[in-house]
C-alpha cells in the first residue's frame, strides 16, 4: 500500500511538472505585450524618453526580456517555495487575491454539495427500487430538465420569480448592505442571500448523481445475491441498504469523491449572476485581463487537487470493496 502511494506521488510530481511547463509556455506565447498594456495609460503624461524608460523598466520588472525557459525556471522555483507571484493587474501577491474568493467558493460548495448529495443519493436509491414507476419517471424527467436548461436561464427565472415578484430573497450579493448584527445573524443573512444560488446549483446538479446512483443500484438489485437475501426473508430495508447499496457504492464513490473535491471549483455563471466573489469569476476575469500569474496559480492548484482526488478515489476503492486490494 505504502509503495503504491509513493509510486503514485512520484507520478503526480511528474504530471505536475509536465502540466506546469505546458501551461506556462502556452500562456506566455499568447500574443500581447503585458508591459505595454500596463504603462499605456501613462503615455499621455510622460515625455517620450520617460515613457520609453518606464516601459523598459516595466519589461525588466516583469522579466519579459529574459528567455522563456529562464522565466519558467524562475516562476516554478518560486511556486515550489510557495510564492505564487504578484498579480499584474492588482499589483499584489496572488495568494492574497485568491484567498477571499476561495473562502466564498468553499463556503458555497459545502452547502451545495451537502444539499445535492443529500437529495440525490436517497432519490437515486428510491428510483432504482421503484424502477419504472410513475415516481421514477417523474424524477427522471425533473432531473434531466434541471440539467438541460442552461443555468443562466434558470437563474434569471428564479431571480424574477423569487426575488423580483415574490421578494422572498435578494436579487444578488452575499449580505445585506451595511448589515449590523451578531455573527449568527450574519450567517443567517448570508444563507438568505445564498438560497437562490444554492437552489439553482442543487437543481442543476440533481440529474447527474441521481441517474448514476439509480443505475448502480438498479444493477445491484438485479444481482442473484439480492434474490438470495430476499429469499432468506431479510427485511427490504436490510436488502437495500446493507446488501444492494454497499455493492452499488463502488462505482458511485468515484463520483462522490469527485464532487467533494469540486468544493474548490467556482461556478462562473452563478457567481456572475448573483454577484458572488468566487473562484469562477476570478479565473475568468483574470483570463480576460491576461493576468497570467493568477490564472496559472489557479490552474496549478486545480491540477494538484485533481491529482490528489484521483489518488483518494483509487485508495478509497480498497476501503469500500474488500475485494479490491491495492498493492505496489
Amino acid at each position: 500500500m505504502l509503495k503504491y502511494i509513493i509510486k503514485r506521488i512520484i507520478y503526480m510530481i511528474f504530471v505536475f511538472f509536465v502540466m506546469s511547463i505546458l501551461l506556462f509556455f502556452l500562456y506566455n506565447m499568447i500574443p500581447g505585450d503585458r508591459a505595454m498594456q500596463e504603462v499605456l495609460p501613462l503615455k499621455e503624461r510622460l515625455r517620450p524618453a520617460q515613457f520609453q524608460e518606464l516601459y523598459e523598466q516595466t519589461r525588466k520588472e516583469m522579466g519579459l526580456d529574459d528567455p522563456l525557459i529562464l522565466r519558467y525556471k524562475r516562476w516554478v522555483t518560486e511556486i515550489l517555495k510557495g510564492n505564487l507571484g504578484d498579480s499584474d493587474r492588482q499589483k499584489r501577491p496572488v495568494i492574497d487575491i485568491i484567498k477571499p474568493p476561495m473562502r466564498n467558493t468553499i463556503f458555497i460548495n459545502i452547502f451545495a454539495i451537502t444539499l445535492a448529495l443529500g437529495i440525490t443519493i436517497p432519490l437515486g436509491i428510491r428510483t432504482a427500487v421503484k424502477k419504472d414507476s410513475t415516481f421514477d419517471r417523474v424524477v427522471q424527467v425533473v432531473t434531466i430538465v434541471g440539467y438541460s436548461v442552461p443555468v443562466f436561464i434558470t437563474a434569471l427565472v428564479f431571480i424574477y420569480i423569487f426575488a423580483v415578484l415574490l421578494r422572498w430573497f435578494p436579487v444578488s450579493g452575499m449580505n445585506t448592505a451595511n448589515f449590523d448584527g451578531t455573527k449568527w445573524e450574519k450567517l443567517l443573512d448570508t444563507m438568505w442571500h445564498l438560497a437562490l444560488p444554492l437552489a439553482i446549483l442543487t437543481l442543476t446538479s440533481l440529474a447527474g448523481v441521481t441517474r448514476y446512483v439509480r443505475a448502480a443500484m438498479a444493477d445491484a438489485l438485479s444481482m442473484d445475491y439480492i434474490k438470495t437475501a430476499r429469499a432468506k426473508g431479510l427485511s427490504e430495508k436490510t436488502v437495500i441498504y446493507s446488501h444492494a447499496w454497499r455493492n452499488a457504492l463502488l462505482p458511485v464513490i468515484t463520483l462522490i469523491i469527485g464532487w467533494v473535491m469540486s468544493i474548490f471549483s467556482g461556478a462562473f455563471i452563478i457567481e456572475s449572476m448573483f454577484s458572488l466573489n468566487g473562484m469562477g469569476r476570478l479565473y475568468i476575469d483574470s483570463l480576460n485581463y491576461k493576468d497570467f500569474n493568477v490564472v496559472l496559480a489557479i490552474q496549478m492548484f486545480y491540477i494538484i487537487i485533481s491529482l490528489m482526488g484521483n489518488l483518494i478515489v483509487d485508495l478509497s476503492y480498497g476501503l469500500v470493496d474488500p475485494r479490491v486490494r491495492i498493492d505496489g
Binding site: I144, V145, S148, L156, V157, F162, A195, A199
Partner: peptide, 30 residues
Amino acid sequence: FLLLALLLTSVLAGCGGTDEPAPAPEEPAA
C-alpha cells in the same frame, strides 16, 4: 422556497410524461 423550486421544476417537466425526457424549452422558459 425549496419545495416550490422542486414544484416549479416538476411543472416545467410536466409536459413530458413519457419515458423519454422532453426537449428543454430553453427560450420560452426564459
